[in-house]
Design a protein around this nucleic acid. Structure first.
Length: 879
RNA sequence: GCCCAGUUGGCGCAGUGGUAGCGCGUUCCCUUGACAUGGGAAAGGUCACAGGUUCAAAUCCUGUACUGGGCACCA
C-alpha cells in the first residue's frame, strides 16, 4: 500500500504487481461459480497454441478480454473467464519436429507412442509458460477451470461430436482433391491455405497427333502435371481447334494417348485456347473430369515426387522435375513458346510451402446443413460481429461454404475414432471393438476440437450446471485471421449440438504491427516481447498503451513510445494519489469522506465543475467499455484525470487544503478522495495493478471496506452531479487564467514575478469577486482590481472570454512584442468572427433551425465580436 | 474480377451535419512543497481529388486515384 511519506516519487511497478497477484490468488478473486440472481458474463479464452511463449498479439487479445471481464465484475455481473490452451496440431508438431531434427532424430524413428509422450511433456512445459504469462499480464481468469483441447474432458467432447455427426451422416470419408502440404505431409482444409501472387511462366507445349502430325498446343504453368493428363479440352465454340475434337494426342515423353474433348469451361483468350486436363491435380480439371468421366491419374505423390506415371521422371522432386522437363521439352522441340506469367500459388498457412492439390482419401464434414442455422442466427441478429463490417465476409463464407476436410496425416491430435476390419463396415468407437479391428491412423484437424471449445469447457456433452448457467457465453474476442477457421465453426457446432449460438458477440480486433506498420516477424527482427515491455515499464503501462490504441477492428502500429507515455500516466496517477493522501489526516474519519455528507449549498465552482465532469466521465467510460471501445474509454479517463483533475482541480483545491477554514478543507478533501476513488475504479479494467494498490491506500478515507477494488464495484452516484452551468462558468475562469498565462509566456515575464491586473468586461465582476482567488493563484496575480477610466499606459492586455485584463508592464517588457502578439490575436479573432457570421447567416436563413441553436450561434458571434473590439481598442492605444 | 476498410498537422491516430482534436515529436519558459516519468506557453492541417445533397460537409451520396485486407480466379 502506498505510504504517503516513505514511498518513492516514481511508481515502481514490480513489487506492487507481485504483491497484488499474490493477494488476488490467495483470495481466488477471479473464481466464478453459478450465482442465482446474477447475470453471467462469460468469455472463453481463444486458447493459445502450445507452440512456445506468448507474443504481443496475445497481450492485446487477452488484455481486451480482461478489460471486459473486470468491467462486468465491477458492474455486478457474475463474470467468468475460462483459461486454456490448444494442442495446435500441425503447428505444434512442427515445433517438435524442429527440436528433434536439432537432436539428430525424427518422429518416424521414434515411433508414434514415444513421439506423443515427448509432445505431452513439451505441452506441460509450454502450458506452464503460457498460463504464467497470462497471470503476469493480470488476466483475471478462473484458474480452476483451466482446459486443454486434448485433455480427457475435451477428448470426450470431441468423440461425442464426431459420433453425433457420424450418426447424422454429416461426416464422411471419400477420395477427393485436397490441399496437400508436401512438407508437413498432410491434407489441409481450404481455410488453412493462403494465396500469394508469384511470377512464373506459361509454357506452350505441343502434344502431337496420335499416329503423327501436328496435334494440339496447350498452355500450362505446370508442365510437370502433364503425366497426369487424361484429356485436352477446348471450347466447343472454338473454330481453331474444331478439327481436333474427337482425335487423340500424345503426351510428350511417355506417348500416352489422350482424347481432345469439348468443355465450355475453357476460355478462348487464355493461352492457346487448349487446356490440358489433369483431374488428379487441379480442382477445375477435376470437375471437367467428372463431367466427361475421365480417369484421374496421379503424377505427383504425397512426398512431392513424381510417380511412376511420369515415366523417365519418376522419383524426381517437383522442383527438379520442372526444370528438367522444361529443358527436355525445349530440346525435343515440344516447347513452342514460353511467356512470363503471374499466377497465384497456394501456400500452407503453417509452413509456407507450396500446396499440391492431390487426390486422396480423407474425412470430410458436410457443411451446408451446419452452415444454415449459423446463417439464420446471424441474419436474425442473434450473433453479432464487432465491428459490423467484419460481418460481411463471415456471411459470404457461410453462403459459399464447401465441405471441410478434417483428417490430418500427422500424429499430434485427436485420433479419428473410426475402426476398420477388412471389408466390414467401419465403426465409430473410442476403444477397439475387438480383435482384428484397427483404428484410422489420421488425427482430426485441430480446429475440430477448437470448434467445440465453448461447449467443451463447460462439460458438454454432459448436462452440467455450468453448461446451463454459462452457455451460451457472452462475448468472444479474437483476431480477424481466424474468423472462418474458428469463429464460424464454433457457431456451427454450437448451434448443431446445443441449438444456441455459443456467444452472442464476437469482437474482432486487429493485429499488432511494428511502429512503421509492418507485420511483426522473427525474420524481420521487429518482434516485440510483451514480457520485455512489462519489465521495462510495468504491466499496467503495457496494457494501457495497447488499449489506448485498440480501436475496433483496427491494427495497432506498436511504438514503444506509447508505452513510455502510458508509464508516465501511471506515474501521474500514483503521484496524484500521494498528493491527496498527504493532505488527509492520519486517521480516516469513521465513515470516511462521503459525497452525501457534502452540503451542496457550500460547494465552490470548482467542486460543482469537477463533479459534473467526473459523473460524465464515469458514464462515458462505462458505456465505451460495454460497447467494446476500450480506446475511447481510455481516452476519456486519461484526459479527465490529467487535464481536469490534476491540472485544474488539484491546483484549485490547494488553497483550501492549506487554509484554516475547516469546513472548506473537508469539502475539498471529500471531493478529492471520492473523485479519485471513482476514477481509479473506472481505470481498473485497463490498469488493474496500480489502481488496486492506490485504492487500497485511500479506500478507508472513501468510507469503503471491500477487501479489493474489484469486489467494491463501480462507484455509484446517487445524485445527479451533471451541471452544465458550472461547466460553462468554469470554462470562462479557465479562459481568464489562460489569457494571462499566455501573455506572461509570450512576453517572457519571469514566472516568479507576480503581476498586477485590472479587469473589465461582463465577466470582470465574477473574476474580481467569487473567482478572485482562482484567477489570482493560477495566473499568479498580486492585486486584481477593477479597471477604471481609460486604458492605463504601459500595459499588456489579455483578452479572455467575457473579461479583459490590463496588466501594467512598464519596464518589464518590450511593447513591440506586445503589439505583435495582440495583432496575431486580432487576426485570429477576425477569422473567428467570419466563421461565426457565416454560420449565423446560414442558420437564420434556414427554415427548421431550433431557437436554441440560433441563440448559441449568436452568443458565439457576440463573444468573438467583443474580443475583436477589445483587441482593436488596445492595439490602437498602444500605437 | 468482386467486396470491405483506410486516405485528417513531422509520425501514429481519434473525430458519423454546426468555428478541426489527441498522443509522440518540435520550439520557448520554468527544479514554485504531489509528480521533470512534471508544469506553462507556442508553432504546425484549405481533413486525397472531383462532383453532388444541405442554410451548413472531415462527417451524408456518387465517381476517381492511391494504400491495405478479404474472396474468387485463365490452365
Amino acid at each position: 500500500m502506498l505510504d504517503r511519506s516513505k514511498d518513492a516519487k516514481p511508481y515502481d511497478p514490480k513489487p506492487v504487481e507481485a504483491a497484488r497477484l499474490a493477494a488476488w490468488d490467495a483470495a481466488k478473486l477471479s473464481r466464478s461459480a453459478p450465482r442465482a440472481g446474477a447475470k453471467p458474463f462469460t468469455i472463453v479464452i481463444p486458447p493459445p497454441n502450445v507452440t512456445g511463449a506468448l507474443h504481443i498479439g496475445h497481450a492485446l487479445n487477452n488484455t481486451l478480454q480482461d478489460v471486459l471481464i473486470r468491467h462486468h465484475r465491477l458492474s455486478g455481473d457474475e463474470a467468468c473467464w475460462v483459461p486454456g490452451t490448444d494442442h495446435g496440431g500441425i503447428a505444434t508438431q512442427n515445433v517438435m519436429e524442429k527440436q528433434l531434427k536439432a537432436e539428430g532424430t525424427d518422429r518416424r524413428s521414434m515411433g508414434r507412442e514415444a513421439f506423443n509422450d515427448r509432445m505431452q511433456a513439451w505441452t506441460r512445459d509450454c502450458k506452464k509458460t503460457i498460463l504464467g504469462q497470462l497471470h503476469r499480464l493480470g488476466c483475471s481468469l478462473d484458474w480452476e477451470r483451466e482446459a486443454f483441447t486434448m485433455d480427457e474432458a475435451r477428448a470426450k467432447a470431441v468423440y461425442a461430436a464426431f459420433k453425433a455427426l457420424w450418426e447424422k451422416v454429416l461426416v464422411y470419408r471419400g477420395e477427393r482433391l485436397v490441399n496437400w502440404c508436401v512438407k508437413d505431409g498432410t491434407a489441409l482444409s481450404d481455410t488453412e491455405v493462403e494465396r500469394e501472387e508469384r511470377k512464373g511462366a506459361l509454357y506452350h507445349i505441343h502434344y502431337p497427333l496420335e499416329g503423327g502430325g501436328e496435334g494440339v498446343v496447350v498452355a500450362t504453368t505446370r508442365p510437370i502435371t502433364m503425366f497426369g493428363d487424361t484429356a485436352v479440352a477446348v471450347n466447343p465454340k472454338d473454330l481453331r481447334w474444331k478439327h481436333m475434337v474427337g482425335k487423340k494426342v500424345l503426351i510428350p515423353f511417355i506417348d500416352r494417348a489422350i482424347p481432345v474433348i469439348e468443355d465450355s469451361y475453357v476460355e478462348f483468350e487464355f493461352g492457346t485456347g487448349a487446356l490440358k486436363v489433369t483431374p488428379a491435380h487441379d480442382q477445375n480439371d477435376w470437375e471437367i473430369g467428372e463431367r466427361h468421366k475421365l480417369a484421374a491419374i496421379k503424377a505427383i505423390g504425397p512426398d512431392g515426387k513424381l510417380t511412376e506415371a511420369a515415366g523417365p521422371y519418376a522419383g524426381l522432386s517437383r522442383e527438379k522435375a520442372q526444370d528438367q522437363i522444361v529443358a527436355d521439352l525445349e530440346a525435343k522441340g515440344f516447347l513452342r513458346k514460353k511467356e512470363d506469367h503471374k499466377s497465384a500459388v497456394q501456400t500452407c498457412y503453417r509452413c509456407g510451402s507450396v500446396i499440391e492439390p492431390l487426390l486422396s482419401l480423407q474425412w470430410f464434414v458436410k457443411q451446408i446443413e451446419l452452415a444454415k442455422p449459423a446463417l439464420k442466427a446471424f441474419d436474425a441478429g442473434e450473433f453479432k460481429i464487432y465491428p459490423e463490417e467484419r460481418g460481411k465476409p463471415y456471411r459470404d463464407w457461410l453462403v459459399n461454404i464447401r465441405d471441410w476436410c478434417v483428417s490430418r496425416q500427422i500424429w499430434w491430435g485427436h485420433r479419428i475414432p473410426v475402426w476398420y476390419n477388412g471389408d466390414s463396415k467401419p465403426v465409430v468407437s473410442l476403444e477397439s471393438p475387438g480383435a482384428g479391428w484397427t483404428q484410422d491412423t489420421d488425427v482430426l484437424d485441430t480446429w475440430f476440437s477448437s470448434a467445440l471449445w465453448p461447449l467443451a469447457v463447460f462439460g458438454w456433452p454432459d448436462r452440467t450446471a455450468d453448461l446451463a448457467y454459462y452457455y451460451p457465453t457472452s462475448t468472444l474476442v479474437t483476431g480477424y485471421e481466424i474468423l472462418f477457421l474458428w469463429v464460424a465453426r464454433m457457431q456451427m457446432m454450437g448451434l448443431a449440438f446445443e441449438n444456441k449460438v455459443p456467444f452472442a458477440d464476437a469482437v474482432i480486433h486487429g493485429i499488432v504491427r511494428d511502429k512503421s506498420g509492418k507485420k511483426m516477424s522473427k525474420s524481420l527482427g521487429n518482434v516485440i516481447d510483451p514480457l520485455v515491455m512489462m519489465d521495462k515499464y510495468g504491466t499496467d503501462a503495457l496494457r494501457f498503451a495497447l488499449m489506448a490504441q485498440a480501436h475496433p477492428g483496427k491494427d495497432i502500429p506498436f511504438d514503444e513510445q506509447m508505452v513510455v507515455g502510458a508509464r508516465n500516466f501511471v506515474n501521474k496517477l500514483w503521484n496524484s494519489t500521494r498528493f491527496v493522501l498527504m493532505n488527509l489526516p492520519e486517521l480516516a474519519p469513521a465513515k470516511g469522506y462521503r459525497l452525501e455528507q457534502l452540503a451542496h449549498c457550500c460547494l465552490e465552482l470548482s467542486d460543482a465543475w469537477i463533479l459534473s465532469r467526473y459523473a460524465a466521465t464515469l458514464e462515458k467510460a462505462k458505456a465505451h467499455f460495454t460497447a467494446y471501445e476500450p480506446a475511447a474509454a481510455a481516452d476519456a479517463l486519461y484526459s479527465f484525470l490529467r487535464d481536469d483533475y490534476c491540472d485544474w482541480y488539484i491546483e484549485l483545491a490547494k488553497e483550501r487544503l492549506a487554509g484554516i477554514d475547516g469546513e472548506a478543507k473537508e469539502a475539498a478533501r471529500t471531493i478529492l478522495v471520492q473523485v479519485l476513488a471513482g476514477t481509479l475504479k473506472a481505470l481498473h479494467p485497463i490498469m488493474p495493478f496500480v489502481t488496486e494498490e492506490l485504492y487500497a491506500s485511500i479506500k478507508e478515507f472513501a468510507g469503503e471496506s471491500a477487501p479489493f477494488l474489484l469486489t467494491a464495484g463501480y462507484q455509484t452516484l446517487d445524485y445527479d452531479w451533471s451541471n452544465p452551468e458550472a461547466e460553462r462558468e468554469m470554462a470562462k475562469v479557465m479562459s481568464a487564467v489562460s489569457s494571462i498565462r499566455s501573455l506572461r509566456s509570450q512576453l517572457n515575464v519571469p514566472p516568479g514575478l507576480k503581476l498586477k491586473a485590472a479587469a473589465t468586461g461582463p465577466f470582470a465582476e465574477a473574476v474580481l469577486g467569487k473567482h478572485r482567488a482562482y484567477v489570482s493563484s493560477l495566473a499568479r496575480l498580486d492585486g486584481l482590481t477593477a479597471a477604471s477610466g481609460g486604458l492605463p499606459p504601459q500595459n499588456g492586455t489579455a483578452v479572455a472570454d467575457g473579461v479583459t485584463f490590463y496588466v501594467p508592464l512598464a519596464g518589464v517588457v518590450d511593447f513591440d512584442k506586445e503589439r505583435e502578439r495582440l495583432a496575431k490575436d486580432l487576426a485570429k479573432a477576425e477569422g473567428d468572427i467570419e466563421k461565426c457570421e457565416a454560420k449565423l447567416k446560414n442558420l437564420s436563413s434556414a427554415p427548421n433551425v431550433p431557437a436554441e441553436k440560433l441563440d448559441e450561434a449568436k452568443a458565439q458571434r457576440d463573444a468573438a465580436a467583443a474580443k475583436r473590439a477589445k483587441l482593436q481598442e488596445t492595439l490602437a492605444a498602444l500605437s
